[in-house]
């Protein structure tokens, strides 16, 4: 009773901290980039940075949905690879079919998300195992379908989604289409979490599924929807990746782990119950800024993975330490 005022102060802090952690790290890293390459301060280059970061940010937003509900989605990268390969095979050089194919890609993604969600909720297989399974499954199917090598090319109208940059836009100068897609997608997922009751349900399910169920929450539906959103974001990211990197059999490799790392860096708590869409957005931007910085510093590509590993451990360690400190 009398302990209330004392705890409440220290409690509110981590929440604000979690919201800002990603933003603070991002600003610091981007400042370091700008120090090495002052022209990164130009709006044009910043827009270009956003364009290249867009797939990771989108993936992180989808991953966040699953993390909030207490799970992981390891199948995102495989879905992105599938999207790139399937697009080139299905479009097969005919630009008229692009939009129909994009619809088909989303259908495939939603199917994968549904499978993940149904297996996790009804067969009670832990999500990390379920999505590891679908990751292998989807990757294998994609490779088998494409014959193990990149086939065909993507038409310009598909690639523009990731590649097109409008020049001479009033006020901001250049505007990549990918940045518009990014903004639209973030607005949508933000609305899903903050503009509807879904977000709070997801947090409650991630925090204590049993209590949520007994309070009447549709736990299964909440979880399944999270996997579907995650898969949809993987398709979206895959389309952008196909746009600016072209067709490759390892287009999506490792992206799922980057997305998880991004959410954690931004302050989302693994196993659910804490985090916001800004954790995903700024966490992903931070991670991408870090990659850019390492490039500028001339570090070999391989070290990227090692550093990402370190950051992931540090971020989770820091968040548990923060939680432990206040109890």
């Amino acid at each position: 009773m009398t302990t209330v005022p004392q705890t409440s102060l220290s409690l509110r802090r981590p929440e604000r901290l979690a919201l800002n952690a990603g933003l603070v790290i991002f600003v610091a890293l981007y400042a370091a980039i700008a120090f090495l390459q002052p022209n990164y301060l130009e709006l044009g280059l910043f827009m270009n940075f956003l364009r290249r970061a867009a797939p990771l940010v989108i993936l992180a937003c989808g991953q966040l949905y699953v993390i909030l509900t207490g799970g992981f989605d390891l199948s995102m990268g495989a879905v992105a690879t599938l999207v790139v390969l399937a697009a080139s095979i299905l479009i097969n050089g005919d630009p008229d079919t692009t939009w129909a194919v994009i619809g088909a890609l989303y259908a495939m993604g939603i199917a994968v998300g549904l499978v993940n969600g149904l297996v996790v909720t009804f067969l009670k297989v832990p999500s990390i195992i379920t999505t590891l399974g679908t990751m292998l499954l989807v990757n294998g199917l994609a490779l088998a379908w494409s014959g193990g090598a990149a086939r065909g090319d993507l038409p310009d109208n598909f690639r523009n989604l990731g590649r097109l940059v409008w020049r001479d836009v009033p006020v901001i100068g250049t505007l990549p289409l990918a940045a518009v897609v990014l903004a639209g997608f973030v607005a949508l997922v933000w609305f899903g979490l903050n503009g509807t009751v879904y977000g709070k349900r997801a947090l409650a399910v991630g925090d204590n599924p049993r209590a949520a169920e007994l309070a009447g929450t549709p736990v299964a539906a909440t979880r399944i929807l999270a996997f579907v959103v995650s898969a949809v974001s993987a398709v979206t990211a895959g389309i952008l990746i196909g746009g600016f990197s072209g067709v490759s059999v390892n287009a999506g490799e490792g992206l799922e782990l980057q997305a998880i790392a991004a959410c954690v860096i931004g302050g989302a708590q693994l196993l659910g119950g804490r985090g916001s869409i800004w954790s995903a957005v700024f966490g992903a931007l931070s991670l991408f800024a870090l990659f850019t910085l390492l490039n500028l510093l001339g570090l070999p590509q391989a070290l990227r993975d090692s550093i990402q590993g370190l950051i992931l451990i540090a971020a989770v360690g820091a968040s548990t330490w923060r939680i432990r400190r206040r109890t």
Binding site: R201, D207, N208, A211, T217
Partner: peptide
């Protein structure tokens, strides 16, 4: 174990059922 989402706010816990039963 069965009643509370401990890391959510007092308000969120009190609203849990209303939010769960209304349209998404």
């Amino acid at each position: 174990r069965e009643g509370l989402a401990l890391r959510q706010s007092v308000r969120d816990n009190a609203l849990l059922t209303l939010r769960s039963m209304t349209g998404i």
